[in-house]
Amino acid sequence: MKQSKFLSLKEFVIVLLLACVETAIGLVVTMPFAANLQLVYFLAPGLAGLINGIIYVLIIRKCPKIGTQFLIPAIYGLYFLFAGSVYVFIFFMILAVVNELIMLGGGYGSKIRSAVPHALTWMLNAMGSTLTMLLFRDSLVESYVAMGMDAASADAAIASLEGFWLAPQNIAIALVAAAALSIAGYALGMKMLDKHFKPAGIV
C-alpha cells in the first residue's frame, strides 16, 4: 500500500503529544534559571534544546512526513500566545512554515538537514525572551512606577535591561549557545534512539 506524504491521525496525535512534552520541558528547564538574567538568556534555551533533542529525533524518525515540522514550533508558539506575546507566536508560526520548507524534498533522509529545524526552533526561543521584553517595555515602565520607583529610575532600569537584551555580542552568544546545545541534543537523541527506542520497538 502506498504511504501518504501527510500525517495520519495516529501520527498527528503522536507528534502533537510529543510536541506538548517538548513545550513542557522547555518551560520546566527555564524555571530554575528564571531569577537570573544571564542564565535565562544564554543557557536555558540551549539546555531545553539539548534535552528536547531526544524527543525531536524520536518524532522525526517515527513520523517523517509533511506536517511534523509545522506542529513542533506551532505548539511551542501557542504557549507564547497564551502568555500574551502575539508577535512571538507569529514568529514561531513563520518558523513552522520555514522548517517544513527546509525538510521538503527528502529532508528526513539527511541527518544534517534534519538537525537544522531543531536548532532554529531553540535559537528563536532564545530570541523570544528578548522580543517579549521589548513588547512589554512601556508596560514595565508603568508597573515599576506604580510599584514605587520614580519615572527616571524606571526608565533607566529599562534602558539597562535593553542594553543587556539588545547588545549584539549578547545576541550572538545566546544564538551560538542555543545552536550548539541544540545540535548536541540532536546527537544525543540519535544515541538514545539506538540505546532505548529501537530496542523498545518504538521506532
Binding site: L37, S139, A157, L161
Partner: peptide, 27 residues
Amino acid sequence: GVGLMDSGVAFSVSSMLSSIGIVSRKV
C-alpha cells in the same frame, strides 16, 4: 524585584524577579 532594582542590588536577579511578577500577573 522593583524594590531590589531601585536599591541597586543584583540587577540580573532583581530585573528577572520584577519581570516574572509583572508578566505573570497579566498572564
